[in-house]
Design a protein around this nucleic acid. Structure first.
Lengths: 195, 195
DNA sequence: TAGTAAACATACCGGTATGTATAGTAACAG
DNA sequence: CTGTTACTATACATACCGGTATGTTTACTA
């Protein structure tokens, strides 16, 4: 009977519109820049409904980060799976997934990094999700690295994470042309040992 | 007789305290999370004085970014100059400068990236400064790359920028141990051609 | 057809945001 | 001793913030 007792049930249409509107606005304008009134208006919903569905702005922000994470993961895994190949090739495919993702969904940089910038406190529910997301990404790359027979999979994963994050920032602040492509080429140097 | 007519004169003690307090608070808590009242209180100054010195919060934010940029540049150039060596060695020294900077002044990641996350609008005075800062960094690395005889200095600079930004994000979100050190090692691979 | 869930409309709360106004004080330079 | 600079103190204007209250409508379904 907790306040999250609806977990598992499908979201109502209104709850869906709220999350969609919030996600778009939080990412584009920044979290603190967007008020709940504006979200409710954009979702064509009353504030009452918003608070019945999400409880508080902080929890809505957490839901936004979680939803974005789900979209990114399924996109990433989809691309990597579709391309297939050896573990080495799949490690490099993550940069192809990143390249397309950035063009289509990431003009303002990494939504998780941006959220962390606005939410410094470690116990904020959304920041917890961000940290989990970043840990997952590192773990995923480490798995692929291990599968590819890397001498030190964790170490390789950390280096690839640096390239992922760097490409994202460089892209969004206009510091590099084809940032993901360049990051991929550098990654290829690191991964070459695995062959 | 514009509103910035005092440029060139030395800052008053109060103006100095305001900028110092604002810098610390903006970086630690986020820009939108910090109100002008709190800054004035922390600087032991009245709001009136704050507005006489900086005109608006937006201009104070721009001053914060500018001051941070100045500190970073002088730290970076100082380290690179002190270490000396060939252009190749100086390119790698930028990662040593980054490593120490992060330990001492950057626990919350890149202040410029964080500011850009909170200020999406291209014409915000502080965002303009951020973009200049990032362009300068890229240009500085390109200069060193050219001096080192790189085949394509701009291209090399962009790859090094990716490593700088990636190391910063990975460090601040706990994704990599010794991120700057790892980035430096990768950079060494890229720079090896210059020898 | 009665009951229930999901949503509606509207108005309000205390608090805080940026920015301004009025009036006064301390130090110093001509 | 007069004027200027740099500040203090306090109060105000206006708008928006997250969050809540009361009551109504719509649509499905048992």
């Amino acid at each position: 009977m907790g306040r999250t007792s609806k977990v598992g049930r499908s979201r109502t249409p209104a709850a869906d519109r709220i999350l969609r509107a919030a996600s778009e606005m939080f990412y584009r304008e920044g979290i603190r820049a967007v008020g709940v009134d504006a979200i409710a208006a954009e979702a064509d919903v009353t504030k009452k409904t918003l608070y019945e569905k999400y409880g508080s702005k902080d929890r809505l922000v957490a839901a936004y980060v979680r939803a974005r994470d789900e979209r990114w993961r399924s996109w990433l895994l989809g691309v990597v799976e579709r391309r297939g190949g050896t573990a080495r090739e799949r490690l490099l495919s993550t940069f192809d997934a990143l390249a397309e993702w950035m063009e289509r969904e990431n003009p303002r940089g990494c939504g998780f990094v941006n959220a962390a910038a606005e939410l410094p406190h470690a116990d904020h529910p959304a920041r917890v999700v961000v940290m989990e997301q970043k840990a997952w990404m590192r773990g995923y790359l480490a798995e692929l690295a291990a599968e590819g027979g890397a001498e030190n999979p964790e170490d390789l994963a950390e280096r690839l994470v640096i390239l992922h994050e760097g490409a994202t920032v460089a892209f969004s602040l206009g510091m590099a042309e084809d940032a993901a492509q360049k990051a991929r080429q550098i990654a290829a140097l690191l991964v070459a040992d695995l062959q």
